[in-house]
C-alpha cells in the first residue's frame, strides 16, 4: 500500500523560507535583538511541545515549566561540572526530559483532562522547591543557581549572541518541520484521533497508553530543548526563574499563537518576548494602564470568547474566507 509521503513540496518550501528569513534577519538584528529572538525561540520550542500535547493530543499541562527547568539544568550541569561543549549537551537534555515526560505520562494515563491539569499544576508549583533541595545543592547550586559561559561563535566573525541565534533558529526550524511530519504521519493521525474520541480510537486498534505516554514524552522533550536554549541564552539558571508562572506564560504564548497549529509556536514565542516588552512600554505611558500580565490575562479570556484558536487560527480562517 502506498502511504502519502509526509515530505511535501509545501513543507520543504516553508522550511527553506523559514531558514532564509532567519539568516536574513540576523544581518539586521543588533546583538540585543538577537538575544531577545533567541529567548523567544527557546520559549517557542517549548510552546511547540505544548501545542502537540494539548492542541493535538488533548492532554492538558499547566506544568511544562518543570520540563523546561529540567532541560535547562541538564545543560547547565553538564557544562559546569563535566566541561561539555554547550551544544553537545542538547541531546542529553532532550533524552532526559523525554524520559521524565514519558514517566509522568503514566500517571497521566489514568487522569482525564481536569485531573491532569491539576497534577501538572502541582508539578509546576513544586519545581522551584525541588531544585533548591539541600541534598542536590552540590549539583544545582541551590538558591544561587549556576553560571557558565555562552557557547563560542560557530564560525569566526560572528558575535556570541548572533551565533546562538543562528543555531537556535535552525534547530527550531528543524523541530517545526519534524513536528509537521510527525503530525501528518500515521502516528499523527493516531494522536489526533485520541483527542477527538479515545474510545473510537482504541477500537481502531490504537494503543492509547503507548501513544499518550510517548506524546507526553515528546512534548516534554521539546520543552526540555527549549529550556536548554533558554539556559544557553542567559548563561545562567536558578530555581526561581522556573516558577509556576513560566508554565502559565508558555500556555499564554501557546493560546495566543494558536494551540492547534505548528507555526503558532513561533508566533507565541515572539509574542511572549516582544508582546511583553511593548505592553511594558505601553503601561509606562500612564498610571492607569495596567501592567502587561494583567492586560494579557484579559486578552486570554477575550480570546477564549472570540478566537479560541489564536492568531494562526484566525489567519487560517480569514484565508479560507478570502478563498471562498
Amino acid at each position: 500500500m502506498n502511504r502519502p509521503n509526509p515530505i511535501t513540496k509545501k513543507l520543504v518550501a516553508s522550511f527553506v523560507l523559514l531558514v532564509v528569513v532567519g539568516i536574513a534577519l540576523m544581518f539586521v538584528a543588533s546583538e540585543y535583538t538577537a538575544y531577545q529572538v533567541t529567548t523567544a525561540l527557546a520559549y517557542g520550542i517549548a510552546i511547540l511541545g505544548l501545542n502537540i500535547l494539548t492542541g493535538y493530543n488533548g492532554q492538558f499541562s499547566i506544568g511544562h515549566s518543570a520540563f523546561f527547568a529540567a532541560g535547562a539544568y541538564v545543560t547547565a550541569i553538564l557544562i559546569t561540572f563535566a566541561g561539555w561543549h554547550p551544544y553537545a549537551t542538547l541531546p542529553v537534555a532532550a533524552a532526559v526530559t523525554f524520559c521524565m515526560g514519558f514517566l509522568f505520562g503514566f500517571p497521566a494515563l489514568r487522569l482525564e483532562g481536569l485531573y491532569l491539569a491539576l497534577a501538572t499544576f502541582a508539578l509546576a508549583v513544586a519545581t522551584p522547591q525541588i531544585l533548591k533541595v539541600d541534598a542536590l545543592e552540590h549539583w544545582t547550586g541551590g538558591v544561587q543557581g549556576l553560571f557558565f559561559d555562552k557557547p563560542d561563535p560557530i564560525f569566526a566573525g560572528l558575535s556570541v549572541d548572533h551565533s546562538l541565534y543562528l543555531v537556535t533558529w535552525i534547530v527550531f526550524a528543524v523541530l517545526m518541520a519534524g513536528a509537521w511530519m510527525l503530525l501528518h504521519s500515521r502516528s499523527g493521525r493516531a494522536i489526533m484521533a485520541i483527542r477527538d474520541n479515545p474510545i473510537a480510537a482504541s477500537t481502531m486498534g490504537i494503543n492509547l497508553a503507548l501513544y499518550k505516554t510517548t506524546t507526553f514524552g515528546v512534548s516534554a522533550m521539546l520543552a526540555g530543548i527549549g529550556g536548554a536554549f533558554f539556559a544557553l541564552a542567559n548563561s545562567f539558571v536558578s530555581p526561581d526563574t522556573f516558577n509556576f508562572f513560566i508554565a502559565v506564560y508558555l500556555l499564554v504564548g501557546s493560546v495566543v499563537g494558536g494551540i492547534i497549529s505548528i507555526p503558532g509556536a513561533l508566533l507565541g514565542g515572539l509574542f511572549y518576548v516582544f508582546g511583553q516588552e511593548y505592553a511594558e512600554e505601553f503601561s509606562n505611558l500612564s498610571e492607569v494602564i495596567p501592567p502587561p500580565w494583567v492586560t494579557f490575562g484579559i486578552l486570554l479570556i477575550l480570546m477564549m470568547y472570540f478566537a479560541p484558536f489564536g492568531i494562526w487560527g484566525a489567519i487560517g480562517r480569514g484565508w479560507a474566507r478570502l478563498k471562498r
Binding site: I259, P291, G297, I298, I301
Partner: peptide
C-alpha cells in the same frame, strides 16, 4: 474544558498581577 481552564488561568493572572500593581 480547555477554554474553561484557560479562562481560570486568565483570572489567576489578572488577580495576581493586579495585586502586585
Amino acid at each position: 474544558i480547555f477554554n474553561q481552564i484557560i479562562v481560570f488561568i486568565g483570572l489567576l493572572m489578572i488577580f495576581n498581577n493586579l495585586a502586585g500593581w
